[in-house]
Simulated scan of single mutants.
Amino acid sequence: MASINIFITDDHLLILEGLSAILESIEGIEVVGMSQSATATLEKLQSIQPDLLITDFHMPGVSGQELLREVKKKYPKIKVLILSMHEEIPEIVDLIKDKADGYILKNSGKEEFIVAIQKVMVGEKYFSSSIVHQLLRDLNNPLLDTKALSNQELKIAKMLANGLSSPIIAEQLFISVNTVNTHKKRIYAKLNISNLQELVKLGAQKGWF
């Protein structure tokens, strides 16, 4: 069986070298390149075509998400596994939309990396177990259910989440401020929330921005 060629990108040298050592110790895996920035990675990918790119998500300058988009556009056959310290569900949803093949936490052990790489290389998606549990929990969260809202209420909810005041909403929708405030109370009641901060959180989860 041919080796799986992996390229690693992380702005922290310690993590870069540590992950490389872990991966090199796994039979059937070869680290063919490393880089501390997305820009340098894109330059190196012109001559190195790995099977899998493992990249940090939070990097200065060009982010891991931007790198993902560029790689998928220029080299669609390269699998991309996102590496992060955080379980940020709205960002993970965006990464899925950008065709990420997986998302693994930096505190994952060697065995989980093996499973992640194996799954990704056969065309499956992989997400750390804690992320899967959080995704499932959020999917069952009433905050995510906007089906109870009328079309007008949904429109106003999005406008509120985007920072528009009641007078501005009233002006744009040709209704009174009192009507906007009445809709606002109904929106909060139907979504079981009590403040604008929770509505903004919902907006982030639903991609309203």
Rank of each mutant, 00 (worst) to 15 (best):
F57T: 05
N192S: 15
N5P: 10
N162C: 09
K74D: 14
L143S: 10
E70F: 04
F174E: 14
L68Y: 06
G207R: 03
S47F: 14
Q152G: 04
S84G: 04
F127L: 07
L42T: 01
K206P: 02
I187M: 05
I22Q: 11
A38D: 07
H58F: 15
P60Q: 08
P76D: 09
S63Q: 02
S84Y: 00
G61V: 03
Y75M: 06
A204T: 11
D51I: 01
M159I: 04
K206D: 05
H58E: 14
V31Q: 12
K73A: 15
I22L: 12
L45K: 01
I187N: 04
I131G: 03
F57I: 05
D56C: 02
I22H: 08
Q205W: 12
E111R: 09
Q46D: 14
A148K: 13
E124K: 14
Q197M: 11
I78L: 00
L68T: 03
L95D: 10
K74V: 02
I175W: 04
L136V: 07
S176K: 10
A116R: 01
E112T: 07
L199A: 12
G18Q: 06
R69E: 15
S130I: 10
Q36G: 11
S37W: 07
N195Q: 05
P76S: 01
I104S: 01
W208S: 03
I4W: 07
Q134T: 09
A161P: 02
